[in-house]
Design a protein around this nucleic acid. Structure first.
Lengths: 331, 331
DNA sequence: CTGAAAGCGCTTACAG
DNA sequence: CTGAAAGCGCTTACAG
């Protein structure tokens, strides 16, 4: 690998000059510049971003730690982050915590070691408050993604409250009063928000949800299948509708409903958050809350970049609007 | 950020010693070590991976450039790469070319600037041979992912030939002779292999596929929908089965089939490569070739690491086996 | 068993 | 308009 020194000596100039033509950071006489450019060409010069970063103490890279690379919504967010970063000439370091706080911690430490300019984080379900304190301690710009926290930190997510309210309104309008909520792991803030929003919206309509219509704590499709199946078999008050709070939970519910021999929508209405890819091609067609996952990712980069430019600006918390696709499953 | 110098002076030792306790790279007296460790704790020392990389001329990072972050199979491969890299303490730099050779080139240049130890690449459809030559020129270890090339480079993909042969065998056994192939962009090597494999397998069974049963060149679901719809409307010899070579193509086909008022499998058999997530929950249930995408990703990291350890070893080309899920759509 | 010092490849005040 | 030189934070022969 050729270095700036070789280029300089070949061109008969100082390394300062080479650096300045490289960065267009001070005027260089056209002839001098031409010699430098020619020298760079001839040795196949490529600037070492590491050395540059070391000297400038910024890396033009950011770290993204997501909690569950399996969920399609997260895949779209990663996609959005990548796109927005690339547009700005920022490199993306990706890590997946797989909902494991220990892996999450390790990933973040590795990212900090690499001196990323900032972090975007979708926290693992069980991760403690210590983690964020640690990042703050390092004074590293941080944006929370999808899973928000009640803290003074930049964040981007979706408006879970209003989405779940709209869904409850839709279902109650259709005459449903016994709605089962399949909520998932309530340590995940987005799921907690959907859960709380659901109960609030129900109460506002004078409806109370008995505990055997609240299925929470599962975090795999298989476990959800089991638990929902059990509830459908044993519950004194059978639901007329089921609402799942993520793709994975929805998959478990669908399987349980099918096994119970229930038909959607005739014997059971069903709606889910996030939903399935290309689902309009298949039966049953399912009412789905779509979060703008790609844009959430883009927005996270936007916030992070803003923060890098203005470290002391006011904290921003963005909640993008979900859209609801009303389909046959709740007809 | 505390540096090794501060730690050294606080502990009353040289920076050499600090470095050696950090890396456990030579014996240090227990007492000395204790002082160093205490000093590191007290200043909250964190090693600068950049400086370390610069000095050692290796970064313990790899770059992954994929061609289409939208396809679920690629999402799984990324997932596998991330997992395998993390296990080895390697950081992952992710970029998406979105099938655009210019973006691909830019991404690779950025990665090379960052001195990644190696590259994993799923080439964009239209990317020229120059790209690989360029990487070879830089003597950067490279593994080709999913989209293989007829070159002396480490590669991991799937055995498209045998998968498509099995599918053709399955369909012809069911009595299908007029099978439409929806092949996609034939500049993509995996799609080319499926196309060639299909024609070969058909010929071996004494079947010739007329050109109006060969749909190729589309690379979006929308374009595929249009083109397949057109063929279904105009073709002299209507197919009794359709085979799609990717998820995206399959989505276009399904829509066209539905619009044509054809029922799967009664009036049209259908099978696809890659397939849809959770598709066993929905109707119609579709015969699908599943590639082990996650393992392909893991394997790519394995090959790359092997190459880093043994730069002059023999080139390895791994083709993992796909599995075929036979479902109702081809009954 | 430990330290002094060179050097990785850049950027950037400072000087002329 | 350009150059000499310090310094970013490490690792690692070399020496004792």
């Amino acid at each position: 690998m050729a270095t700036i020194v070789e280029v300089a000596s070949l061109a008969g100039v100082s390394t300062s000059t080479v650096s300045h033509v490289l960065n267009e950071t001070r005027h260089v006489e056209p002839e001098t510049r031409a010699k430098v450019v020619a020298a760079m060409k001839s040795v196949g010069y490529r600037r070492d971003a590491l050395a540059r970063s070391l000297r400038r103490s910024r890396t033009d890279s950011i770290g993204l730690v997501i909690s569950d690379a399996g969920e399609p919504a997260f895949a779209d967010m990663v996609h959005g982050v990548e796109e927005a970063a690339a547009q700005r000439g920022i490199s993306l370091l990706l890590a997946n915590s797989a909902e494991d706080p220990a892996r999450e911690r390790a990933a973040i430490e590795a990212l900090l070691d690499r001196r990323v300019d900032g972090l975007i984080l979708a926290m693992a379900a069980g991760s403690g408050a210590g983690l964020l304190a640690r990042i703050r301690e390092e004074k590293k710009p941080l944006v929370l993604l999808d899973r928000l926290a009640d803290l003074d930190v930049d964040q981007v997510g979706v408006d879970n409250q209003s989405a779940v309210t709209a869904l409850v309104e839709h279902l109650t309008d259709k005459g449903h009063e016994r709605i089962m909520l399949v909520a998932g792991d309530l340590r995940v803030s987005s799921l907690r928000e959907r859960y709380d929003g659901f109960r609030l919206a129900m109460r506002e309509r004078g409806l109370d949800t008995p505990s055997d219509l609240l299925c929470e704590g599962t975090s795999t499709a298989a476990a959800t299948f089991e638990q929902v199946g059990e509830l459908l078999r044993t519950s004194a008050q059978q639901p007329t509708a089921i609402l799942a709070c993520s793709t994975l939970l929805g998959a478990g519910v669908l399987k349980a409903v099918q096994q119970a021999g229930l038909l959607i929508p005739d014997s059971m209405a069903f709606a889910t958050f996030d939903g399935f890819a290309y689902s309009d091609l298949f039966e049953p067609q399912i009412t789905t809350v779509r979060q703008p996952a790609f844009q959430i990712g883009e927005e996270a980069v936007g916030l992070l970049v803003r923060r890098l430019e203005d470290p002391s600006g006011a904290t921003q918390i963005h909640r993008l609007k979900s859209s609801i696709e009303f389909r046959q499953s709740t007809e």
